[in-house]
Design a protein around this nucleic acid. Sequence first.
DNA 1: TTTGATTTGTCAATTTATGACAAAATTAAT
DNA 2: ATTAATTTTGTCATAAATTGACAAATCAAA
Lengths: 101, 101
Amino acid sequence: MYFAQKLKSLREENHYLQRQIAALLDIDTPMYSRIERGERFAKEEHIPILAKYYNIDESELRQLWLADKVYDVIAGESSANDVLSIVSESIAEYGKENKSC
Amino acid sequence: MYFAQKLKSLREENHYLQRQIAALLDIDTPMYSRIERGERFAKEEHIPILAKYYNIDESELRQLWLADKVYDVIAGESSANDVLSIVSESIAEYGKENKSC
DNA sequence: TTTGATTTGTCAATTTATGACAAAATTAAT
DNA sequence: ATTAATTTTGTCATAAATTGACAAATCAAA
């Protein structure tokens, strides 16, 4: 998963242990392990904590977290793309930057 | 919402009362009222029941139901489109029919 | 105004998600 | 190879969110 993979690479690049990040998020290590493997979702309030700690853009990290949630809804659906199109079109009122042609 | 609006127009086109559809779905009328206004989600098992009853394509109705769920995740997010793009790209492995150019 | 339809408020019951603990498995170091 | 540390898995208790029911209010028509 998007968020999970990011968490793992961030942690490994910075040579931290799961136990350290778990402590940062005030959860136990097994719980963090599941989050890092995409077995569980991180809580929303974990996002700013992680972004600050790793000194990365919070909204970017948040996007990955949301992408996981969206993926969770349409995972395994054969018409996943159609569903995304439906939503995408109704949201396109704001910014039309995704209409690539 | 997508699913809610569809439900309402289907019911009105066919001149049914909320109470009748509620009975069909084995829930009470207030509950159905909320579903029709998008205040609550219909249960997954309601979809085939409704599709049969109205004699419409089940997968199409299901797509609207899923669209509501997806929208629920990204509603109010300024980067909603970016999130959809992230998911859309990773799903594009299967069918590339949404790459319109 | 009376009747029927729809909506709103509230809360109990169910379902789902979260977090903790023990223990197993994996990996690294000695 | 044995030990020590890290990570993962299994299980369960608790917490949070969702669902459904009932009563009552609002709305619409006759």
